[in-house]
């Protein structure tokens, strides 16, 4: 494996091996050892052409715990804001000897473009491209679900997950549907028809417009952020109405199965898609998702930067 661009490129076995690797790395981070020499001398560039806190910090923490050198590069304050193209930026990074580039870009397919081009020789990690994919987020979500509800199994067979809200603009939803279905979970998308993408019927998920009829039957409720910055037209009449039909508040949470968990990829619009009581409740694993993100991203960097494909067995 050289790049991580899309969940579609991963086999079930590869996905599980990343989760297993993350599991061992999480135990390392829990212990006395916070720093491993594994990627000493390797350079990882965080190329963030779109705003991000969680993902960038998470990749930075992951790279640093593996002793890699990290260069942070954001569009603001760099030559990208002077109009430098992706190609010129990539060639600059190549000239500096980057072993991997973690890229966040507002254009769908930017990571693929970077990987397919001959502009640079390093690994490319997609950290979110437009409304296309966000594979590391899906992996950390699957990791979190497996940890809470996996019953010691390696996949998610038999679990059901509702992904609720702005599916249309969500790369998190797209990656999660692909990965969770690949791991055997049953996925239901819940959204108003205006916030579902064209062609959603070909996704490996069922669709519902009625949150209340879905919520008592799922093990995981994954709320999506309403992406107002990507909304160029009216998708729903007003915030209060959206919140009433598709928001998760404490009343609605009461009808969840015992043991079911609430997830959110962040950043949250408290009061819109999720109420503050739910976000801070004992069912919420939202901060744990952030913690797990570091372990999962360590696993991704480990797998990509240590040549060849993953093989089983220790020693």
């Amino acid at each position: 494996m050289r790049h991580l661009l899309s969940i579609a490129d991963l086999s079930k076995i590869e996905a599980i091996s990343i989760l297993d690797t993350a599991n061992e790395l999480a135990r390392v981070s829990d212990g006395a050892v916070k720093k491993l020499p594994t990627l000493r001398g390797r350079t990882i560039v965080n190329l963030f052409a779109e705003d991000s806190t969680r993902t960038r910090i998470s990749f930075e923490a992951a790279a640093k715990r593996l002793s890699a050198d990290v260069i942070n590069f954001s569009a603001k304050g760099s030559s990208v804001s002077k109009g430098e193209s992706l190609k010129d930026t990539a060639m600059t990074l190549q000239a500096m000897g980057a072993d991997a580039v973690v890229i966040r870009h507002s254009a769908s397919g930017a990571a693929q473009r970077l990987a397919d081009s001959q502009w640079m020789s390093g690994s490319v990690v997609n950290a979110g491209d437009g409304t296309h994919e966000h594979p590391s987020q899906a992996l950390l979500d699957a990791f979190t679900i497996r940890k809470h509800l996996g019953l010691g199994k390696s996949d998610l067979e038999g679990l059901s997950v509702a992904i609720v809200g702005d599916v249309l603009h969500s790369r998190v939803a797209r990656s999660n549907v692909l990965l969770l279905a690949k791991l055997g979970a049953k996925v239901t998308l819940v959204a108003p028809p205006t916030l579902l993408p064209v062609g959603v019927e070909s996704w490996p998920a069922s669709v519902s417009y009625d949150f209340d009829s879905v919520i008592p039957f799922v093990d995981v409720v994954m709320m999506l952020r309403v992406q107002q910055e990507r909304m160029t037209e009216m998708y729903f009449p007003n915030a209060r109405e959206y919140s009433r039909y598709f928001g998760l508040n404490s009343d609605r949470m009461k009808s969840m199965k015992p043991g079911a968990i609430v997830m959110h990829p962040g950043p949250m619009n408290r009061g819109l898609e999720i109420s503050a009581e739910v976000a801070d409740s004992s069912r919420s694993v939202i901060t744990e998702q952030v913690t797990n993100g570091v372990s999962v991203r360590m696993a991704i960097l480990y797998v990509l930067l240590t040549g060849g494909s993953l093989e089983a067995g220790g020693n």
Binding site: L25, L36, G308, G313
Partner: peptide, 15 residues
């Protein structure tokens, strides 16, 4: 994670 040949060989599963 402490091996000196990680750049040369396929990654091993972590035990």
């Amino acid at each position: 994670l402490f091996r000196d040949d990680l750049r040369l060989r396929a990654p091993k599963a972590i035990m």
